[in-house]
C-alpha cells in the first residue's frame, strides 16, 4: 500500500497557526490580542460553513443560526452553573442536535438546493426575531434572563475546568482559541481524507452516481450539516466568552451574510480559503470602523460584488490556477 502523504499546504497552514498561536502573545499588546482572539474564533465559524458549503455542496444561508444558538447556549448554561466547562460542551451539542433535526427535515424531505438556502436563512431570522422579543422578566431560563434585544451582559467567562474561581486570562484564552482553530482545521482535513470525507465530496459532485454506488446521499449530507452546526456552535461559545456578552445580533442578516462573504472571498472548496477570507475581511472591517472612512456595510457589499464578478472562485483557488499556469509555462521547452 502507498503511503498517503499529507499535502504541504496543510502542513504550512498548520505551522503558521502554531507560530501565530505561540508568537503573537509575545509581541502584541492586550488590545491587539483581544482582536486576534475574536478573529481566530470567527475563523472557526468560517471553517464550519467552508466544510458544509465548500465540500458538502450544501447551500446554507443561515450558518449564523448555529453560531447564535451556540452563543446563547453558552450564555444560559454559564450563568446558571457559574462554570464554563459544561457550557462549552453544550454550546457544541445543542446546535448540533438542532442542525440534525433541521437537516433531517431538509435532506430526507428531498428539498432542492434553492429551498435549502431559503429555509436556513429563514431559520436564523426567526431566531433573530424570537430572541429580540424576549425582553422582560418572564423570559428567563433558570437564573438567566434573556433580555431581548439588549442581550445578556456580564457572562461568566472561561474558567479552568472544574475550578470556577480560576478564570482564563486573555493570553490563555488566545492560546485556547488558537489550539481549537488548529484542531478544527487539522481535524477537518483528516476527516476529508477519510472514506466518509471523500464520499461527502463525491455527493457534492454527483448525487445520482453516489446513490448508484450504494452510498446514502441523505445520510452523508445530514452528517456533514450536523458537523457544521457543531463547529459553528463552538465558535458561538468562543464569541460569547470573548465579549462576556451575547445579543440577538448573532442571528442577524449581517452576521450570516458575513460568513458567506468570508467563504466566497477566501474560496469555496478549500479550508484555508475561508480562514484567509475571514481574517482579511475582519481586518478590513476593523480598519474601516476605526478610520470612519466609509460605511462598512457598503464596503462589504462592494467587495462581495467585486469578488462574485471578478474572482468568483475566491482567492485561494484562483492562486492555485495562477500557480498551475506558471508551472505550465516554466515546464514548456524553450522554442
Amino acid at each position: 500500500m502507498k503511503l498517503r502523504r499529507v499535502s504541504p499546504g496543510i502542513v504550512a497552514t498548520a505551522a503558521v497557526m502554531v507560530a501565530v498561536g505561540l508568537g503573537v502573545p509575545l509581541v502584541v499588546d492586550q488590545f491587539q490580542l483581544l482582536q486576534l482572539t475574536v478573529f481566530a474564533s470567527m475563523c472557526i465559524l468560517a471553517l464550519s460553513l467552508g466544510v458544509v458549503w465548500g465540500y458538502g455542496g450544501i447551500l446554507c444561508f443561515g450558518q449564523s443560526a448555529f453560531f447564535g444558538l451556540g452563543a446563547y447556549t453558552y450564555a444560559v448554561t454559564a450563568v446558571n452553573l457559574a462554570e464554563s466547562t459544561l457550557a462549552i460542551l453544550l454550546s457544541i451539542v445543542v446546535p448540533a442536535v438542532f442542525a440534525a433535526l433541521l437537516g433531517y427535515f431538509m435532506f430526507y424531505g428531498r428539498l432542492s438546493d434553492v429551498y435549502l438556502g431559503v429555509i436556513t436563512l429563514s431559520v436564523t431570522l426567526i431566531f433573530f426575531n424570537l430572541m429580540n422579543s424576549t425582553a422582560g422578566d418572564a423570559y428567563r431560563i433558570g437564573t438567566a434572563r434573556l433580555n431581548g434585544f439588549n442581550g445578556m451582559p456580564s457572562l461568566p467567562t472561561f474558567n479552568v475546568p472544574g475550578n470556577p474561581g480560576r478564570l482564563l486570562d486573555p493570553t490563555e484564552t488566545f492560546y485556547l482559541v488558537m489550539a481549537l482553530l488548529l484542531s478544527v482545521y487539522v481535524g477537518l482535513h483528516a476527516l476529508l481524507a477519510s472514506h466518509f470525507g471523500r464520499v461527502v465530496v463525491a455527493v457534492r459532485e454527483n448525487e445520482t452516481r453516489c446513490e448508484l454506488l450504494g452510498y446514502d446521499v441523505r445520510l452523508h449530507k445530514l452528517l456533514v450539516f450536523t458537523l457544521g452546526g457543531a463547529i459553528a456552535g463552538l465558535a458561538g461559545s468562543l464569541f460569547a466568552n470573548w465579549g462576556a456578552f451575547v445579543s440577538p445580533n448573532v442571528f442577524s442578516l449581517s452576521t450570516t451574510s458575513q460568513i458567506i462573504i468570508w467563504v466566497i472571498v477566501g474560496g469555496l472548496g478549500t479550508l484555508v480559503g475561508p480562514i484567509i477570507g475571514c481574517v482579511l475581511m475582519q481586518y478590513l472591517a476593523t480598519e474601516l470602523g476605526t478610520q470612519q472612512l466609509a460605511n462598512t456595510s457598503l464596503m462589504f457589499g462592494i467587495i462581495f460584488l467585486a469578488f462574485v464578478l471578478l474572482v468568483p472562485r475566491g482567492i485561494v483557488p484562483s492562486l492555485g490556477v495562477v500557480r498551475a499556469r506558471l508551472s505550465a509555462v516554466r515546464a514548456r521547452p524553450p522554442a
Binding site: R198, V201, A202, N206, R209, L213
Partner: peptide, 16 residues
Amino acid sequence: PNLFDSLTVRDHLWLA
C-alpha cells in the same frame, strides 16, 4: 455518464 467531474479516474474506482 454520471461521474464526479472534479475527481480523478482513480478516485472514482476507489470510491466504488
